[in-house]
Amino acid sequence: MTNKAIQRAVSIAGSQQKLASLCGVAQPTVWRWLHGGGIEIRYVMEIVKATGGKVKAQDIRPDLAQLLQAS
């Protein structure tokens, strides 16, 4: 299962390596995100920033939006 939001972020950044560098992680971490691995909350805003806001936090982690609405 490919994470569409991360796929889009990789596309915007130019490569997995570039997105990794912008987010302060190693490229294998981006590969893991892309292939359904969990994305820690601390990296969500880094991904949003790396894409210039083109990929939204709720696209990356829809569960976060649901949690915020529930409170």
Rank of each mutant, 00 (worst) to 15 (best):
W33E: 03
Q16H: 12
S15G: 04
C23A: 13
A57C: 05
Q7F: 11
A65E: 07
R32W: 04
G53E: 02
L67S: 03
N3M: 10
L22K: 15
S71Y: 08
G14R: 11
R61P: 05
I47S: 02
W31G: 11
K56Y: 05
L22A: 14
A13L: 03
K4F: 10
S15I: 00
Q66S: 07
W33N: 10
Q16G: 13
Q27V: 00
G53D: 04
V55K: 01
I39C: 08
A50P: 03
V10M: 00
Q66V: 04
G52K: 08
Q69D: 11
V10T: 12
K18T: 15
E40Q: 13
H35L: 04
L64W: 14
R32V: 15
Q58P: 00
D59Q: 15
R61C: 08
L19G: 07
A20L: 06
P28R: 12
Q17V: 12
A57T: 10
A20P: 05
I60M: 02
K56Q: 14
G36V: 09
K18A: 15
M45N: 13
I6T: 12
G52W: 14
D59C: 03
E46D: 15
S11L: 09
A9W: 05
R32L: 07
A5H: 03
I6L: 10
P28Y: 08
A70N: 13
A70C: 01
L67C: 01
A26D: 12
G37N: 02
S21F: 14
A65C: 08
I41N: 01
Q69H: 12
Q66T: 12
R8I: 05
T29G: 03
W33I: 10
V48A: 00
S71W: 10
G38V: 11
K56R: 14
V25W: 03
A57Y: 12
V25N: 01
V10E: 04
L64R: 10
D63A: 12
Q69A: 15
P62Q: 09
A26Q: 13
I12T: 06
Q16I: 11
R32G: 08
T51M: 07
V44K: 10
M1H: 09
V10A: 01
V44E: 01
I12G: 04
L34N: 08
I12P: 07
D63E: 15
L22V: 13
